[in-house]
Design a protein around this nucleic acid. Structure first.
Lengths: 362, 362
DNA sequence: ATTAGCAAACTACCGCATAGAGTGCTAAAA
DNA sequence: TTTTAGCACTCTATGCGGTAGTTTGCTAAT
């Protein structure tokens, strides 16, 4: 059912007002700030109707109105004003991204810091493991006489290194030849290809190389979608306590415990790839039992066309969505423009070693 | 000035009692639980004396006594009962250390988890960068035609990888030969040796290898003591809120903000190497302006005779020091017995290396 | 040196009254 | 039919006062 223009306006006024003050919004307040032409009684009537429709509630019979989660969902979809970043906010972004960044991890970490600083909310960023990466080079590096380290270079960076036991009395030369062999076997394939049909790609393996091969295959498997390896960063967890909805110690604790278990945050943050910004407001996101009531807004970030991770904020349902969206949006563009891995290696230029190497123009 | 045996006993009773309940301890409580032979009046007199000496205070004239920071310092030094871990606590340790751990980062991370779980306090662990590591092997791994990754294997693990720009049209074979060359130049030396006298160790460098050499030297330098690289992990920040001393929102926030700024924690955690366990109780540790009142207990951890990092707890001044010490002590022994970096790598065991990439050339 | 007894100090809790804010409803006005 | 003024009603927040309970320090007796 559609909302009349006036209802929309009142609802927006309530949401805006409540976001700002975290106080129930009264009819007279709306009259004064937004609709001086109407009487408070009329606004009261409209508010009663909005309550009937499920967009507003009252804490008690004689309090002003508070938006429901449903109202926020409508708000972010239709009502919310779109802003640009202010000059001082841009300054903060610059402060973090002016430094030379060479590592994907750092990109995400800085993104989290900026988000938290500008929105004044707890932010979270996470680097997605991506099995779309293409193998470029594999090197076996001797550590001791009998063990070696496996380095896998992909177009998205150095993935993971595992030690492998390769018998005793191994020389560097032997490692080099193994490296050469496994590289020629896997190079050019993506991890998911290899995981799907390992036998097709690796036709025959010399007996002596078997152990190395199986270890490498195991590494690749750990990159398959189910047991995703990922790295997650939180910034500004203390900021949760600035929000009046967590002024209650019990609620604050529930929230902080939720944040403490970083690993379990991953499924919550996962957002649909095709949408740039994902909202999870209130009951939307009851993925975990006993999860505290909150809202999560995440954006997915790309470098060179590949999604490298997500970043966003976690906070009370009443948050400044408008600001959050503008920050996430702006950063998504900023990150996108970071030089991808392989390109210009100018002398003295910083490069993104462990980041993405894309074939920009083909 | 020495304390009579009775004063000691009473002081210990107050500290123990206050640690347990976080309630001012009254004379009658001590009489009942610890000294039934004496009257409460006598105990009151002794308490008044202890207050005079600076070990006890009252919140108001008609409240029981509370230990001062000074009392805690005496307590950990002399009075505190020494405990062993209980069966259930040992179980927790086993749960975390039964898995095969091959990476130093994970050792410290697990240590932090165990500490937090057993003590129910916020714990912190940090990996010390150590320039005492001996170079075992250096490998240059080609990433693109013109850039490569430097892998440095030491007896303490894989240290750091940096990309280096090595001109264009480079082949794997070329990288192998560079690897060979730099390895033979540096292998067997510790990082600090190399930092002290780079010219002595590297006598002559072929022109074409110069860039690689200078990058490697820069990496080594970043391991020197002044600009220590370190990795810091927090576990259980939410547990702070379980402590009644941070029940006040303002205090809780101050504490969490303090913890949020992980990097700034490093100097606080640094403890003297020759002492196994370091206590910083109350004003002891006012390293940072506005640092919230708290106590920090840290232990340094060794593997193979080398200090690899510190781990400990941060909490209210009133904490169960006895338990904390027993946990830190036990873990220190457990960690000590872990295979050192170079030793036995289990068959096909996965190992995670933190790949830190530093910027390349000047 | 120790202890019983007692007054004094202080907190914590409960109930009560009051002021203030905001609503819903009704009846009048537009 | 829509809007509005007026008013009674509801509920919160705050402050006050009184009471019960705890613990101390002091004094005098043991």
């Amino acid at each position: 059912m559609g909302l009349t223009g006036r209802k929309e306006k009142i609802l927006q006024a309530v949401v805006d007002g409540y976001i700002e003050n975290c106080q129930p919004v009264s009819s007279s307040e709306i009259k004064e700030k937004h609709l001086p032409a109407l009487s408070s009684a009329t606004i009261r009537n409209e508010m009663a109707a909005l309550e009937e429709m499920g967009y507003l509630t009252q804490l008690h019979t004689s309090s002003g109105r508070v938006p429901t989660a449903e109202a926020y969902r409508l708000y972010v979809e239709k009502l919310m004003p779109r802003r640009k970043l202010t000059r001082s906010e841009l300054k903060i972004v610059k402060r973090y991204f002016n430094k030379k960044i060479t590592e994907l991890d750092d990109v995400l970490k800085n993104t989290a810091k900026v988000i938290s600083e500008i929105t004044n909310l707890t932010s979270v960023a996470y680097v997605q493991s991506n099995d779309a990466a293409t193998i470029l080079n594999i090197r076996i590096v001797r550590i001791t006489d009998s063990s070696a380290l496996i380095i896998i270079v992909t177009n998205m960076g150095v993935l993971k290194d595992a030690t492998v036991n390769i018998g005793s009395g191994v020389t560097d030369e032997y490692c080099d030849s193994v490296s050469h062999f496994v590289t020629s076997a896997f190079a050019g394939h993506t991890i998911s290809e290899i995981n799907r049909q390992p036998n097709k790609i690796v036709k025959q393996v010399k007996k002596e190389y078997e152990r190395v091969f199986s270890t490498i295959l195991r590494i690749f498997k750990s990159y398959s979608h189910d047991d995703m390896f990922s790295d997650i960063v939180l910034e500004g967890s203390a900021k949760i306590l600035e929000q009046p909805e967590y002024a209650n110690l019990k609620k604050a604790k529930a929230m902080l415990e939720f944040l403490d278990a970083k690993e379990e945050l991953v499924p919550v943050l996962q957002n649909s790839d095709d949408v740039n910004i994902t909202f999870q407001i209130g009951k939307d996101n009851e993925i975990r039992e006993g999860m505290p009531e909150c809202a999560i807004v995440t954006a997915s970030y790309n470098i060179g066309g590949v999604t490298v991770g997500n970043a966003g904020v976690i906070g009370p349902i009443r948050m400044d969505y408008s600001k959050v969206v503008s920050v996430l949006d702006y950063l998504s563009k900023t990150v996108q423009m970071l030089p991808a891995g392989e390109g210009a290696h100018g002398d003295g230029t910083e490069e993104y070693s462990s980041s993405v190497t894309s074939d920009t123009d083909e």
